[in-house]
Design a protein around this nucleic acid. Sequence first.
DNA 1: GTTTACCTTTACGTTAACGTCAACCTTAAG
DNA 2: CTTAAGGTTGACGTTAACGTAAAGGTAAAC
Lengths: 131, 131
Amino acid sequence: MTETILKTYTIGELAKEFNVTTRAIRFYEDKGILNPSRQGQKRIYGPRDRILLKLTLRGKRIGFTLAESQKLFDMYQHGEDNKDQLETMLATLDEKDALLAQQKLDIEEMEAELQAARERCLTAIKKIDNI
Amino acid sequence: MTETILKTYTIGELAKEFNVTTRAIRFYEDKGILNPSRQGQKRIYGPRDRILLKLTLRGKRIGFTLAESQKLFDMYQHGEDNKDQLETMLATLDEKDALLAQQKLDIEEMEAELQAARERCLTAIKKIDNI
DNA sequence: GTTTACCTTTACGTTAACGTCAACCTTAAG
DNA sequence: CTTAAGGTTGACGTTAACGTAAAGGTAAAC
């Protein structure tokens, strides 16, 4: 008995859980990121699709394009045996890592500036209130 | 003598310094982000434009749209006296801050996954080399 | 049996952020 | 004087990531 029963989701459930439209989810399938099975003509998503969706959305939030995410997933899945592909993936990973490092700096600098702007705002409001 | 001589830049200089095209720089002017003076018909950029360009590009790297950056700059510059605007700006700043916090989490999770993928890659390569 | 709530495919529309000509001016150099 | 290396204004083209109808299938609920 290697049979395992997996949790499944409808497109609407996933859409609600991750706060995206069903249109977006179908779009990701179009782009080859998701691969739901069917029950009749209805899409059925398993845990794997759910994870991929989650990763995709996270990628998006930090500026990955769908193509980039897809490429990473793809390499992760079919790259075990091909050395060239593994090395390409390594390079990609390093590149992404560098970008993330830069982004961290950018975020911290931006946070400092937002904080400064915030204080300037508060001071200006106080002045107005005290007139 | 309140006269101060400011450093100026041509569009090409800025493009080279920040590694963007002149087309992009002109585009930012179109969007109201930059405001160079002219010498004849040639654009002359001062330190202020340079900073704004720098901030804009940094914003881009962490996912700000040009419109968002422009809005922030705008509020920062003309908002001193209008209380409503100041409060709008505060709200915007808080919102952005929240996004940045989320991004930090996303980045860290992504880094962990890239690291894991990296190790999987290296192991797989070693296996291939040892055959 | 007919709403209601989801689901489906097909396909054109939209927005952001430039890219990419084209056609032209303007100096400094040879 | 003409060539080269900048700069200028249009203005149409492009890509990503969906939005937005339109037109229809299906299944449980009333």
